[in-house]
Design a protein around this nucleic acid. Structure first.
Lengths: 134, 134
DNA sequence: ATAAGGGTTCCCGCAACTGGAAGGTCAAGG
DNA sequence: CCTTGACCTTCCAGTTGCGGGAACCCTTAT
């Protein structure tokens, strides 16, 4: 398989696949013309990576997950730990976003949103409160 | 004021302040020794930027917000639009995270997390389902 | 004289790609 | 045989929002 076929079948852009090779996540063979030659197992790995990425795992996590996947003697606890850490990161991020969302939606609610210049959003951002502490 | 003072009073790292100058968000004066000399108004702007950033606005949004803030003839509608667009981005991101979280927490729940290799998380990631479409 | 504690510029690096340029390869059509 | 077009290759630059560190200048105190 050439990279185009793998791209189609894995759903990953060719650029991404080349990048994954560059950082050592896949190691396709090479044909005599210099083209990458992917085996079914490479396609499989790439699909694995695509799914892991879509769950938000970092490429480093993906590397670990892939290694565990290929290791028949793995302990599922190791996989679980990576996933749980990732879940924790997601939760932190969501809390952060929730905070922002709450503040912003309150401000937006109070803003007339018309042609006049008065704006509680800007007023809040400019708040001298404790920001310009002496 | 030198950059260190402004950093302390605005809560932004000096590096960040230099970067903001580089991209034209603030324009401090310069002393004869080449040091940046910040006015109160610069400090004020930086504090504004700090607050806007903490609400998750991109630097480009910050630039627009700052311009609107300085424009006495602004329409609050313009500010509101930026904020609403940002809220929409936040909501999309939260949905994305919720999705991931749901999938991951189901998988983690099903994983024994012991010394054995069997792992539904890896099984899911490796799912041949439709990923390797012919 | 020198040491500490400011400040300055410049350049690299991060994550995870994306876009584009310049060029090689291959199969089909005129 | 030549060309066209669709592939493929490598390399380089840019994205976002900074952080780290080198190498150097300025000021003040001891």
């Amino acid at each position: 398989m050439n990279i185009g076929d793998v791209a189609r079948r894995s759903g990953l852009p060719a650029k991404t696949i080349r990048y994954y090779e560059e950082i050592g996540l896949v190691e396709p063979l090479r044909g005599p013309n210099g083209y990458r030659r992917f085996r079914e197992s490479d396609l499989h790995k790439l699909a694995f990576l695509g799914r892991a990425r879509s769950l938000g795992f970092s490429l480093e996590d993906c590397r670990s997950l892939l290694a565990l996947y290929e290791d028949r003697t793995r302990a599922s606890a190791d996989v679980k730990k990576i996933a749980q850490d990732h879940i924790a990161r997601i939760e932190r991020k969501m809390d952060e976003l929730r905070q922002m969302h709450e503040t912003l939606s309150h401000l937006v609610e109070k803003c007339a949103g018309d042609h006049r210049p008065d704006c509680p959003i800007l007023a809040d951002l400019a708040a001298e409160a404790d920001c310009c502490a002496k």
